[in-house]
Amino acid sequence: MHKRTLLISVLLVLAAGLFAVYGVETLRMSGGKTRQIAVIMKSGDIRSEFWQTFGEGVKAAAKRFDVNAEIAGPLSESDADGQIKAVNEAIAKKPDAIVLAATDEAKLKPSVDKIKKAGIKLVSVDTASNAGATESVIATDQTEAGKRAGLHLAGQLTANASKAFILKSANGAAEAAEREEGVRAALSGSPQAEYIGTFTSEGTEDRAYETAKLLLASHSDVKGIVCLNEKMTLGAARAIKEKALTGEIKLIGFDSSIYIVKLLEEGVVQATVVQKPFNMGFLSIKSAVQLLSGIKANPKQYVESLVITKDNMYSQQNQQLLFPIVER
């Protein structure tokens, strides 16, 4: 009887301890003044479904953790100067934390240094934003995503050593370099593909179209293209359609929009690698709140990417990724 009483007492003490720890962490997450978090996206363009969906994840997390999240970003992902201006404006408001998806790591480094000098917590999204300065990174494993794109292209090519190239934006974004690395690794390991180079274009659909059109004219034997973002994908698809090469040239893209969905249905795009921007937005705010509460955040959190094709695009899970509910 004495042993049973002692056991119950020990269990009660342990339970009380667990409750105290849980209660303290909960209070640290939600108590005190309302925290201010500035979120600087790569693009604030309402036509960018990726970043608009990311913003919805931010809003959901801000409501869940009772913080104020102010979202900003340049109209174009290639506008590093516009993003630097947005970061400087955010620093001037002295927020508790900044969530930053850097358009160009090298150009944004001085801004990152300013954030750290100001004592503001920094969470990086999509890219590491000079990993030594950031305390938490929320990102897709871009190298793995690139491998998936390259492997899918190789599986679409029927003849051995079919020529293929990569088309990417010229803005120097780190995730593009990581995606390229993954694509090249996949293509180099496949007898179906012969990688002939990576070509860059300015970050608009029109510029991507012009670049792709010139490349297709100078490489008439190309059978495959991997584009590393939505704008490159749309531009290359337009060039393929214009030259009546639908289906003959296999095109693998990145990201999603109603336009890419239509191209999948038409068979112009064979697959697109889709990230989970809502999850990224939510986790970025959660990590910022943890850092502000003195709770160590996961230094690097990867969010899974998926390969969407015409065959699997109608599943419920993939429909939610392709057609997110976004407030306009």
Rank of each mutant, 00 (worst) to 15 (best):
S78Y: 04
T211R: 15
P95T: 00
T127H: 05
I91Q: 05
P110K: 13
S220I: 02
K262W: 01
F199P: 10
T143K: 14
E205V: 15
S315R: 02
D45W: 00
A212I: 00
G150M: 08
L321T: 01
Y259C: 03
D96E: 10
L291T: 10
E25Q: 13
E105V: 11
A177L: 12
V303H: 04
L75E: 05
A186M: 08
E175H: 14
T34R: 12
L215E: 07
S257H: 09
K163E: 14
G224C: 13
S76A: 10
A212E: 00
S48T: 04
F19L: 15
P74F: 02
A80F: 03
D96P: 05
T34V: 08
A177I: 12
V67C: 01
I258M: 14
A174D: 12
K296E: 09
S43E: 07
I308P: 02
G182P: 02
Y314A: 13
R179Q: 06
Q83F: 06
H219R: 15
A92F: 05
K116T: 11
E242D: 15
L6F: 07
I84S: 13
E266C: 12
H2P: 00
R47N: 14
R328K: 15
G172K: 00
K300Y: 10
Q317E: 15
L18K: 00
K223P: 09
L11W: 03
R4A: 14
N130P: 00
V307E: 13
A61R: 05
K147A: 02
Q275E: 12
L153Y: 02
I71R: 06
L283E: 09
D221P: 10
V137G: 09
L214P: 00
P324H: 10
G57N: 05
D311K: 14
E135M: 09
L245D: 05
G32C: 02
F50D: 02
A92W: 00
Q270V: 09
M29N: 06
E242C: 10
L215D: 03
S124A: 15
I98A: 10
